[in-house]
Amino acid sequence: MTAAASLPAGRRARWRRIAGDRWAVTGAAVVVGLLVIAAAAPLLSAVEGQDPYTYHLDALDDSGVPRGFGGGISARHWFGVEPLTGRDLFAIVVHGARTSILVGVAATALSVLLGVLVGMTAGFFGGWYDRITGRAIDVLFGFPTLILMIALGAIAPAALPKPALVVGVIGLFGWPGIARVVRGQTLALRGRTFVVASVSLGAGPLHVLVRQILPNLGATIIVYATMLIPGMIGAEAALSFLGVGVPPPTPAWGRSIGDAIAWVQTDPMFLVFPGAALFLTTLAFNLLGDGLRDALDPRTAGVAR
């Protein structure tokens, strides 16, 4: 921890910068709120006295439209009910937060793990290994990923749990971006005195990578992970929207949005609640990610403020 030792003072300054960024703080607050909602989803819907699976056909009229104001908003159903089924929309939205955040965060973790691993080793070792990974990244960028995701969803054996598959598929296509950045940073770090010195003192590559390079990548990794999450959540929603995400009846915002678009003229609230939830979530993560980048990313930190 040689060169990184100068950090404490800088770190405190960075946190102050984040704390001073109103948007980032708002984003962080919303993110924390969402995490709580996702964790407590069953509890929240239990407070309301509903669950996202039970049909309430009595809440619908003859053509399947929710009775009453705003898509059936009432003391029993806080956000109203879903057309055609009468399932409770509040329960669906809060349980949907679970799906979105779980999948988004897990896929991000997978991408970051792969990206850091590949990027760091490629940047550190260079040579043919670097060229091969570079080519692999080109292949992944060259793939029309959406189509492949649909195909993979279709060929996966039924025994494989669908959420795991969705995480795997999104995560596997998410890593090249972060790998490129990490590779670049590693390349730069490799030439820095403290690394050169420690290599010349006989430290093994594993030691250098884990103890000297990785800690210095921390800020970049955190920033990129935060900025990756909204993309992943969006990807999960897009897959659900396409009907290749988590299968029903497990609630998912993307699927609700896809269903709700047809109903927008008869029951607009059916679109508003899941749509707003998805938008707010990606927005909050984006705001937080921006704030973190401005505060932590050494490249923009000096200039932007």
Binding site: A238, G275, T282, L283, L287
Partner: peptide, 14 residues
Amino acid sequence: IAGVSAPAYLVGLL
């Protein structure tokens, strides 16, 4: 930032 956060299908259909 709102534009970056909005899903294309939703904006398109609206």
